[in-house]
Design a protein around this nucleic acid. Structure first.
Length: 390
RNA sequence: GCACAGGUGGGUGAGUGGUUAAAGCCGGCAGACUGUAAAUCUGCUCCUCCUAGCGGGGUACGAAGGUUCGAAUCCUUCCCUGUGCA
C-alpha cells in the first residue's frame, strides 16, 4: 500500500530512481517547481509539460484560503482544476507556521492563523490539514509539521520536534481512516487528459523529520518518524536562515538515518549547486521557490554562473542569456532584450526569465540523474554547472 | 507692450528666514532572495578630503545685487517660460 519507488542505479550515496504516482512517473532525483496557488508563477501548464516537469508543488494553506478546498474539490480536485495531468505534491501548511510567524499562534492541538489576505482567523490541525489535502487530491501529501525557526536553543528545538512527531502520528491516523473517501466522485475522470483513471487514484502521505541543527535530535526525529511509518520521508526545517555549511551537515547526517528504499525529500532547497550536491548525497526530491522568484527579480542561473539581468552591462549584449542552454528563451532572445523587458516591467520578462531558470534547474537534475545512472557521481562546484544535453 | 502665474538637484515636485546638501515619487546604480504574505525588499545616487563614518571642506534652489547673526525662502533690477489682453 505504499508508493511504488524503484531505485534503478546507485553511485556512491546517490541514487537514480522512479516514483510511480497515479499521475505518471517521476524520475528521481527530481526538482519540483513550486506552484503555491495552483500556478507556477509566470509559466503556463503546457510550457511546464514541455519543460519536462513531472511533479509540481501546491500549498494547502494558500489554496484553503483561496479558492477554498471545497471549491477545488467540487471542480474535480487540484489536477483537474489547474489542468495538470502529472503528479502534484501539496505542502501541509507546516511551513506557514514558520513563515507567517507574525500571524499565528501554535498550540498542542494545532495552529491558529490570521489570514494574510484579510486578517480572518483560521485553525489548522494535523486533522484539518489532512482533510484539506485529501480534498485537494494531490498524489503526495505532507504531514502537518512545525518548521522550527533558526536559531533556536536545544530545548526549543526538542519541544518543537516532539510536537511535530505527535502531529505526524495524528496526521497519519487521520489520513489512514479517511483516504479512501475519494472526495470528488465520478465527474472528475472526464477531462483529465493523459492521467490514469481516477478510480485507481491514490494518495500517499510523507512524514517530515525536524530537529533543527542538532544532529542527535535529527537522528531521533528520523527514527521516531520512521517508527510511525510513511512511504516517504522529508527533511524539513532547513533553509531557514542557517549557514549553508550547517544545512549540508544536517542533510548528510539525517540521510544516514532514513531508509534507503523510500523516497527522501529535502524541503525548500536550493541553489543549482546545492541541488546537485544534495542529489549526490542521496536526496531524491527537492523543491524551491528560488528559480521562479529569482527569475521574477531578474536573477538568472546559467552555466556560467548567476546573472543579474538588470545590470547596465547587458544593455547592449546581443548574446543569449546562457550560450550553453537550449531553452526556448536562450534560443531566441538576447540579454539586451531580456534586460529591456526587466527594466520596462514587462510581464513577458518574468515569463521568459522563469522559463529559463526552470529549464536550467530541470536540466541540471537530468544531468545529475544521467550521471548517476551511468554510475558516475557528479560533483559540481560553482561555475561548473552542467550543460544541457542536445 | 501690459497683466497675472512661474523659474529648485538627471526628471517631476515639496519646501516660503534657521533642525535644508534640500522631502516624496520617477529615473540611474548595486545588493538580497532557498517546503512563496515577494512583478518584492534593502542600500547608494552634487564635488572633494580622511582607511572610514550619523566626520571636515567646497559648491548648489534662473542671474546680479541687497536686507539679516543667518536666505532656496524677504527686497531691487535683469533674464527666461506659460497663460490672458493689446
Amino acid at each position: 500500500m505504499s508508493l511504488p519507488f524503484k531505485i534503478e542505479a546507485e553511485s556512491g550515496s546517490a541514487r537514480a530512481g522512479r516514483l510511480l504516482t497515479s499521475h505518471g512517473e517521476v524520475e528521481t532525483p527530481v526538482f519540483m517547481p513550486v506552484g503555491t496557488l495552483a500556478s507556477v508563477k509566470g509559466v503556463s501548464q503546457d510550457i511546464l509539460e514541455e519543460l519536462g516537469v513531472q511533479i509540481l508543488l501546491g500549498n494547502t494553506y494558500h489554496l484553503y484560503l483561496r479558492p477554498g478546498v471545497e471549491q477545488v474539490r467540487k471542480l474535480g480536485g487540484l489536477h483537474r482544476f489547474m489542468s495538470w495531468p502529472r503528479a502534484i505534491l501539496t505542502d501541509s501548511g507546516g511551513f506557514q507556521v514558520f513563515s507567517l510567524s507574525e500571524l499565528r499562534k501554535v498550540s498542542e492541538d494545532g495552529v491558529t492563523f490570521r489570514s494574510h489576505l484579510d486578517g480572518s482567523s483560521h485553525f489548522f490541525s494535523p486533522e484539518s490539514a489532512m482533510e484539506a489535502q485529501i480534498g485537494l487530491g494531490a498524489d503526495i501529501i505532507m504531514a502537518f509539521d512545525e518548521c522550527t525557526e533558526h536559531p533556536a536553543d536545544r530545548e526549543r528545538v526538542r519541544t518543537s520536534m516532539e510536537l511535530t512527531l505527535r502531529w505526524a502520528e495524528r496526521s497519519k491516523k487521520y489520513f489512514e481512516s479517511h483516504k479512501e473517501e475519494v472526495p470528488w466522485g465520478e465527474t472528475a475522470s472526464v477531462a483529465r487528459a493523459p492521467s490514469p483513471a481516477d478510480a485507481t487514484q491514490t494518495q500517499d502521505l510523507f512524514g517530515i523529520v525536524q530537529g533543527g541543527m542538532d544532529l542527535d535530535l535529527r537522528r531521533e526525529s528520523a527514527e521516531r518518524t520512521i517508527e510511525i511509518g510513511f512511504p516517504g520521508y522529508a527533511i524539513g526545517g532547513l533553509s531557514v536562515g542557517e549557514p549553508r555549511v550547517l544545512t549540508r551537515e544536517v542533510v548528510e547526517a539525517t540521510l544516514q538515518h532514513l531508509p534507503k528504499d523510500k523516497p527522501r525529500y529535502l524541503m525548500g532547497v536550493g541553489t543549482p549547486e546545492e541541488i546537485v550536491e544534495y542529489a549526490n548525497l542521496g536526496v531524491d526530491m527537492m523543491d524551491c521557490v528560488l528559480p521562479t522568484r529569482a527569475a521574477r527579480h531578474g536573477l538568472l542561473f546559467t552555466s556560467e554562473g548567476k546573472i543579474s539581468i538588470k545590470q547596465a552591462r547587458y544593455a547592449g549584449d546581443e548574446g543569449p542569456l546562457d550560450p550553453n542552454c537550449g531553452c526556448r528563451v536562450c534560443g531566441r532572445y538576447s540579454r539586451a532584450y531580456l534586460r529591456h523587458l526587466y527594466a520596462s516591467n514587462e510581464v513577458l520578462g518574468q515569463v521568459l526569465n522563469t522559463v529559463h531558470n526552470l529549464t536550467f534547474y530541470l536540466d541540471t537534475m537530468r544531468t545529475v540523474r544521467h550521471s548517476i545512472a551511468r554510475g558516475k557521481g557528479v560533483r559540481f562546484l560553482s561555475g561548473e554547472l552542467p550543460q544541457r544535453k542536445s
